[in-house]
Write a protein that binds this DNA or RNA. Structure first.
Lengths: 218, 218
DNA sequence: AAATATTTTTAGACTAATCTAAAAATATAT
DNA sequence: ATATATTTTTAGATTAGTCTAAAAATATTT
C-alpha cells in the first residue's frame, strides 16, 4: 500500500526531474513539499525501500519505472478531475487545482476509467497540459513560449506554465484563454515586454507573462 | 481542523445513535470502526475536547450539535457522490459505497454545491436513503418494511436497509430495484418467508430479505 | 450482597510523518 | 589545497492513531 504522503513526494520528484535534471536533490524536494530536508531524507529512504526511487546517500534521487508509473497515474487523475470541475461543475481554471489535489488520491480504477469516458477522453486539461492515457502516454504538442514568438506571426494560446491563481485571473481579465488567437505586434528590447493583438484589443504584456504563456503557430 | 479519522468516528457515532439509543457505548463504536475499545476511548476524549461529542467516563457518548452537523454533512456528501457514480459513471448500486467512503471526505463547499446542482438536487440516493439539504434537513418518507406489509396490498420499493454488495446483487438478480412494484401474495407462518408478485414473476423471499426491503403503499 | 462477568479506561509501546539541532559529506572560494 | 560554506544525513523528540495487557468501573448472576 502506498500512502497519500508517499504519492505526493513521488509527484514532486517527478515534476522536479521533468524540468531537465536527472537526479533531484533533497533541498529541492523540501522546498517543493514545504517541509524540512531531514523529513525528505526519511521519506526518500522509504521510497527507495519500496522501490519507487533509486537513492544513494548525498547523491540525490531518481524515480524507478514503478515510481514514474505512480506519478503519471496521479497526474492523469488530477487533470481528468480538473476537466470535470471546469466542464461540468462551473469551476474556473484558477479554482480547480486545490480540489483536484485531493481528488487525485482517490483510488478506484473504475472511477477514473468511467470519468475519462464521461468526459469523452479529453487529451488536455483546462491549463493546456496533456492528460496521459491509461498506459501513461502523453500526447505531445509542439508549443513555444510567447517570449520566443516571432513579431508578425499569429498563434493560438495552448497552455500556461504558471498555474497560480493570480496569473490565471490576470489572463481572464485580459480575455486570454485556451484557444485565444494572438498576433505578436512588437517586442520592446528595453524590458522584453511584448505588444500583442487579440480579437478586439491590443495589449502589452510583461516579460514574466510572456514567459508563462504557451502558443502554437497557426 | 477535523481529521479524516475524526470524521469517520463522528459518522459511526451518528449512525449508532440514530438507531434508537441515546448514548453510544465504546464497544459498539469499536466494532463499527473495526478497532479496539482502547482506541475508541482515546478518540472520544479527543472529540469531546473539540466539542463534537459529550462524554462522561464509563457513561457512553453522544454527539453535540456541532458533531451532528459534521455527521449530516458527510452523509450528504456521501449520498450525492453515490448518485453521481450511478447516474453519470455507470456504477451499479452495490459498487458505489466503497468509493463514496473516500469521496465524502473531500472538503470544498463549492464542489458539493455544484455537484448537487449538476445532479439536479436529488433527494434520495441509489439505495433510497434521503439526501439532507445544505441546512441538514432530511426529506422524510413514510416507508414500511416488507416483513410487515399486508397480504394482498401493492407497494413500491423505496429503499433498502442492508446495503451490502451481496444483498444488492441478490435484488438485482431477482429484478428488484428502487421503484419496482410489489404485491404481497402470501406470508408463510412457519419461516416468515413471503411470496411476492413482481411485474413478470412471482418469487418467495426469506425473512432476512423481507426485513431489509422498504416499501411504500400505493 | 457478594462473587463473577463484562465493559471501559489507563499505561506503556509502536508506526508514520514530522521537527530541531548537531554531525557528516560535498561543494565552493581563496 | 586548505578553509569556508552549503547540503545532506543522523539522532532524538513530537503528534495522531493504533495496539496489548492490566486495572478500574459497572453490570449480572446467584
Amino acid at each position: 500500500m502506498i500512502t497519500l504522503t508517499e504519492e505526493n513526494y513521488i509527484k514532486a520528484i517527478y515534476y522536479l526531474s521533468s524540468n531537465g535534471e536527472k537526479t533531484v536533490n533533497t533541498n529541492a524536494i523540501a522546498s517543493a513539499m514545504q517541509t524540512k530536508a531531514s523529513s525528505v531524507t526519511d521519506m526518500i529512504k522509504k521510497l527507495s525501500e519500496k522501490n519507487y526511487a533509486d537513492y544513494k546517500k548525498y547523491q540525490g534521487v531518481t524515480l524507478t519505472d514503478d515510481g514514474k508509473r505512480v506519478a503519471v497515474n496521479i497526474i492523469r487523475k488530477h487533470r481528468l478531475w480538473e476537466v470535470f470541475l471546469v466542464e461540468k461543475l462551473n469551476f474556473s481554471w484558477d479554482e480547480v487545482h486545490e480540489v483536484a489535489e485531493h481528488l487525485e488520491h482517490i483510488k478506484s480504477d473504475k472511477l477514473i476509467d468511467e470519468l475519462d469516458a464521461f468526459l469523452e477522453f479529453p487529451t488536455y486539461d483546462p491549463h493546456g497540459d496533456p492528460i496521459p492515457d491509461k498506459e501513461g502516454n502523453f500526447k505531445h504538442i509542439e508549443k513555444i513560449v510567447l517570449a520566443k514568438a516571432e513579431v508578425g506571426s499569429t498563434y493560438k494560446c495552448v497552455g500556461v506554465d504558471d498555474t497560480s491563481s493570480n496569473f490565471l485571473k490576470y489572463l481572464d481579465s485580459n480575455h486570454i484563454a485556451l484557444g485565444t488567437i494572438i498576433t505578436v505586434k512588437h517586442k520592446e528590447p528595453f524590458d522584453n515586454s511584448i505588444k500583442i493583438a487579440l480579437e478586439n484589443s491590443e495589449i502589452v504584456v510583461s516579460q514574466s507573462v510572456a514567459k508563462n504563456l504557451y502558443l502554437k503557430k497557426i
